[in-house]
Write a protein that binds this DNA or RNA. Structure first.
Lengths: 353, 353
DNA sequence: ATCTCGCTGGACATTTTTTGTCCCGCATAG
DNA sequence: CTATGCGGGACAAAAAATGTCCAGCGAGAT
């Protein structure tokens, strides 16, 4: 009997589970979220964990007891940690939960909708759970590490997500022939989020070297032009333009304008132009058209057509529309995002999944 | 990152589920059992279903509500039936639950322990749920149908399980060149369980023809010998000995002795000889040795070495030891049994699964 | 036609489980 | 030393589950 020999696929198992035990999904997702959160924040107390997850302490306690009994968590006076088994199964569990929530399907839809080479969707919503953002950064760092070839120049942007990506980069054991450079000048006053800092940290971890610009991104057009003629700056900018790989984040237009200290009238102008998302100092409307340009050092959107691989990393449902706007332009090849942003980027119709 | 690309297998999914959600397995199994039972007995009322499953009515009601909401059951004034979706997923669900309870592992262990070509373990225990027995018979009938080649002679035994197997045989649409014969004479007074009846019903469903012995199995040695010389009987016996496939059940030694109306002293003798299981009128001890032989028409154990495929179908934890004794002799190639019998046959050490 | 039986769905009292909340003792950091 | 965060214990209140009963309906038998 050939049908008796048919083996179920993972997707079929998950489909059966959802059909026969509808109350299963929410519970396993919560348990996965707990494990993931502990993984990124261990040791962590039960109360802090509950707060981060937006769950009651009592609920977390209940789940924690199950996971402890299962040998996946260990609990000490300083808080909760993953056991060795817990560490071991977290990756597999992520994939399983991704199947349950349909993350792979979202990734496929994103890939198709925005004509990407590759899309990865992390389970959860960065707006709601910091651990989702960390996991997204970790996966992004992983993808990046695997892409790098000998002799590459990698340009990276600044920002919160990019800083997290650098932090999540696993230190390599040896030297590597790679140069990491900032894609743009610096913006804002938070040192750790600057493109220069991100490039340096990442280069160190990858076992390569780095170059920095050491200049702000908002110099104004004329000043930026003359600074670009400085020999050392010119050399770094030339290197930046040799980049084979570029990694960038994404911001909501209004938020980025604020962060750049634009005037209220400028912010209003950007909004009236339909700007939704921002990358590289360029503002994109919902159709992916550039509607506003700020002066910027380093790479601009027109340079990206000569770049072999552009990877966009960003998530959170609040950034979903911004992500869609940026991706719609078409310069990104790879996106690493999360479920929250993916659902927003794909619009409400995906809720029928 | 190669590990990000690794796809989870069904077995891995199930293992994760058991690890992370240990309390959900029993509930999934119960829901599967309900669906399976309804499938074999529909339409069935909630109270009858509860009694058959050994569950409280309230519990069945709770699960039924979930399954109805999921669109797997439909409920009418005459009772509960499977919906079309329910019918569709039952086979896949059986496989999933088999993974969950480790039925495949039991099958592998059986196959290895008793040096079988193939072992199939049905989820559940026939002693506790009639639907398990029906499912085992259905699968056995399916395996048999797939094994039959053009021109085959198939010999079948009598008994409850065999009668059920004949009943579960799906009627073929056309004619088939196959002869179905009784492996032995008739035993007991229940017409539907006689080998003759089983052979006739099965032949009809398979689209083949049948021969019958029309003689009791307990004739005594001398009378059996002279009857075997009758031309028509001799002809049928010759055909029986041409069998390429033999299907038999298994009984506990004491129970079979009682069913054969043996005297208390004979029954005591059989027990003192260490007899545990019975097949073809032969009694086997726990090492698979024949310790007692009854007079019998038709096939005997020594004939089986010339038979290409011998399939044993039987289950229920109460028959576990008997199954092990029969299989230990080594004449069966295939076994279709259930979890209850498999665990018993393999002994207590399998509880560590 | 009526009667009987099996059925579902409603209902409610009781039991069990879950949840929310508080707090004590311990360990650690400053 | 004090302050703070931690886990584990505890208990009242709320929610859910369970056990049990039953009315009304429909189908089959008489």
């Amino acid at each position: 009997m050939s049908s008796e020999m048919q083996m179920l696929s993972a997707a079929e198992i998950v489909s059966l589970q959802r059909r026969v035990m509808p109350e299963f999904s929410d519970r396993i997702i919560l348990r996965y979220n707990i494990l993931r959160h502990v993984s990124h924040a261990q040791p962590i107390g039960r109360r802090a964990l509950a707060q981060s997850l937006g769950e009651s302490e009592r609920h977390v306690r209940r789940e924690e007891n199950v996971l402890r009994t299962a040998g996946l968590l260990v609990v000490g006076p300083d808080g909760i940690r993953l056991s060795e088994d817990g560490e071991d199964i977290l990756r597999d569990l992520a994939e399983y939960v991704g199947l349950l929530v349909g993350a792979q399907r979202l990734a496929d839809l994103l890939q198709h909708e925005f004509d990407l080479e590759r899309a990865i969707v992390i389970t959860g919503n960065s707006d709601e759970d910091e651990a989702v953002k960390k996991e997204m950064a970790r996966v992004g760092a992983c993808v990046l590490r695997d892409m790098i070839s000998d002799g590459d120049v990698v340009a990276v942007c600044g920002g919160t997500t990019m800083a997290e990506l650098a932090a999540q980069t696993v230190p390599a054991s040896g030297k590597r022939n790679v140069v990491v450079v900032p894609a743009r000048g610096s913006l804002g006053e938070d040192v750790e989020k600057q493109a220069d800092t991100v490039a340096a940290l990442m280069a160190k971890k990858l076992g390569g070297v780095y170059r920095i610009l050491n200049l702000p991104d908002d110099l104004g057009h004329e000043l930026a032009a003359s600074v670009a003629e400085e020999p050392r700056t010119k050399e770094v900018l030339d290197t930046i333009r040799q980049s084979r790989i570029v990694v960038h984040g994404v911001g909501t237009a209004v938020e980025m304008a604020r962060r750049r200290n634009m005037s209220p009238s400028e912010i209003e102008e950007i909004a009236s132009l339909g700007a939704v998302g921002e990358a590289f100092g360029f503002y994109f409307d919902r159709d992916g058209e550039v509607v506003y340009i700020t002066s910027s050092l380093g790479l601009r959107v027109s340079d990206l057509s000569a770049v072999e691989t552009v990877m966009c990393v960003g998530g959170g449902s609040s950034k979903g529309q911004a992500l869609a706007a940026v991706l719609r332009n078409g310069f990104s090849h790879i996106v690493v995002t999360d479920e929250g942003a993916a659902r927003e980027a794909l619009g409400k119709t995906v809720d029928d999944a």
